[in-house]
Design a binder for these strands. Structure first.
Length: 457
RNA sequence: GGCGGGGUGGCAGAGUGGUUAUGCAGCGGCCUGCAAAGCCGUGUACAGCGGUUCGAUUCCGCUCCCUGCCUCCA
């Protein structure tokens, strides 16, 4: 049996996954900054790590899954201020919306969802430790900075060196910094902003220290997997390494995983271009019953390290493929049984997933199994299909209900009327009813023996 | 300028030194009152130019093109 292999951004190669503690895995994923609804690109990243966690569990690991919530940040303060809403009330709403979006996408609830504002103490401890080690200093403006050139490994994740970074410096240099690359750990309080008392004076944390503190508190100084979006490699993850390893003098993370971007067509999705859809916006446009799994399927059928283009056509395409899988399960009732890993297609699925979560190949195995189910009408194989899909969060719905979707029309009455017409050999009437239903997005399927199934197109 | 990721059949998307990826769409057939679903069959894709090799889409070099990060960002 193939071992699980993970592409580690730190080493830029696939490595066999060896957890710190046999049989266990700790994973930390950078969650949202809750200043708005998440967009479909964010949804991709979260879906990817949901897949990772599910596969680790399916592989027998006892997983501790941590995904934080950044609930104090410039953008949050700006939004709350412009809405004239207290920050706490604003973030309560945005967090609730995030939870709702995750549920619609059938994402697992993490074992822990630390919020930055509840971990100020650990953050300050970390900053104090950094200061005592000479890695942090207080600027003239009251901010506390991390001293990048005092941390020897800086740049090892993103493969950048300080000289190149300085040459590429494009931002007005903060006068209080000793080095333009130094980043803020603690921001001195400003009027009208939330702040917490500290040995450095009242203030609030910088973004990077939040993740170092929360991950360390939840998973320990060293843990197995840290995930996030591709763009977080630099500076965010680089800075996390500097902070955590600087303070603890221990390796921070063994496997760094980064999910590639979802693009809008062939353009980068960006808030400044305004070319993005929120996850809920997309879900609202899909069938209420099928939409969540359809979007999830769309997001995961490409490899997580490859960029993916978002277009309505591709979303439809994914929906058609997914409905095909459910159609097989509707035709052949699935037997309840654990996965039989000795089946060649199950082994292929497992090997693909173990090869750095190669979902395209894993889904290919599922599709081949679907054809096998249709050919053999074997309940055992249907059960295998359903169980394999279940390992990564798919195909668990009732097929009949899934395929009928959120149809509100009284289809059954029309189907009965058509059956009567057919019996009377009034095919014109029967076909008219079918055309009428088709116009409403409903497809009829006559079964041998006279029964008629229907599904949403 | 520094560092990085890519160019695969109509579309999407894996993978491999020589054998069918897979899906969607299309086409032909079976089935069907007709459809739908399903099954069967079907498409000589691997940016270009050199090189290595018995043989390269798959390794090496060069060229062209697209694209990400270096600033908040999934």
């Amino acid at each position: 049996m193939s071992p699980l292999v993970i592409y580690n951004t730190l080493t830029r190669r696939k490595e066999t996954f060896v957890p710190l503690v046999p049989g266990r895995a700790g994973i930390y994923v950078c969650g949202p900054t809750v200043y708005d609804f998440i967009h479909v690109g964010n949804a991709r990243t979260f879906a990817v790590f949901d897949l990772v966690v599910r596969w680790l569990r399916a592989s027998g690991y006892e997983v501790t899954y941590v995904r934080n919530i950044t609930d104090v940040d410039d953008k949050i303060l700006d939004r709350a201020r412009s809405r004239g809403e207290p920050i706490g009330a604003f973030t309560e709403r945005t967090v609730a919306a995030f939870v709702e979006d995750c549920a619609r996408l059938n994402l697992l609830v993490p074992d822990s969802e630390p919020r930055a504002t509840r971990y100020i103490g650990p953050m300050l401890e970390l900053i104090e430790r950094l200061e005592s080690k000479g890695l942090a200093y207080r600027g003239a403006n009251g901010d506390v900075f991390f001293s990048v050139h005092d941390f020897p490994g800086y740049g090892k994740l993103s493969r950048k060196n300080l000289a190149d970074l300085r040459a590429g410096e494009r931002v007005a240099v903060e006068a209080a910094k000793r080095d333009p690359l130094d980043f803020v750990l603690w921001k001195a309080a400003k009027p009208g902003e939330p702040s917490w008392p500290s040995a450095f004076g009242a203030g609030r944390p910088g973004w990077h220290i939040e993740c170092s503190a929360m991950s360390g508190r939840e998973l320990g100084a060293t843990f197995d997997i840290h995930g996030g979006g591709w763009d977080l490699q630099f500076p965010h993850h680089e800075n996390e390494i500097a902070q955590s390893e600087g303070a603890n003098a221990k390796p921070f993370v063994n496997y760094w995983m980064h999910a590639a971007f979802l693009n809008m067509g062939d353009e980068k999705m960006s808030k400044s271009l305004g070319n993005f859809f929120t996850a809920r916006e997309v879900l609202d446009r899909l069938d209420p019953v099928q939409g969540g799994e359809q979007l999830r399927f769309f997001l995961l059928r490409g490899h997580y390290r490859s960029e993916l283009a978002f277009t309505p056509e591709l979303l439809d395409d994914a929906g058609n493929a997914l409905r095909g899988l459910y159609t097989a399960l509707r035709e052949v009732p699935a037997a309840q049984a654990p996965v039989d890993w000795s089946h060649p297609l199950a082994a292929r699925f497992r090997d693909a997933m173990n090869d750095d979560f190669d979902t395209p190949v894993a889904f290919a195995a599922l599709h081949e199994l679907r054809a096998e189910v249709n050919r053999t009408r074997s309940g055992a194989l249907a059960g295998l299909l359903r169980a394999l899909g279940g390992t990564i969060g798919f195909l668990q719905r009732d097929p009949e209900a899934f395929l009928k979707g959120g149809v509100t029309l009284d289809v059954d009455a029309l189907v009965a009327e058509r059956a009567a017409a057919k019996k009377a050999k009034d095919y014109a009437r029967a076909d008219a009813i079918r055309a009428q239903l088709d116009a409403s997005g409903i497809v009829l399927e006559d079964k041998p023996g006279g029964a008629t199934e229907w599904r949403k197109k």
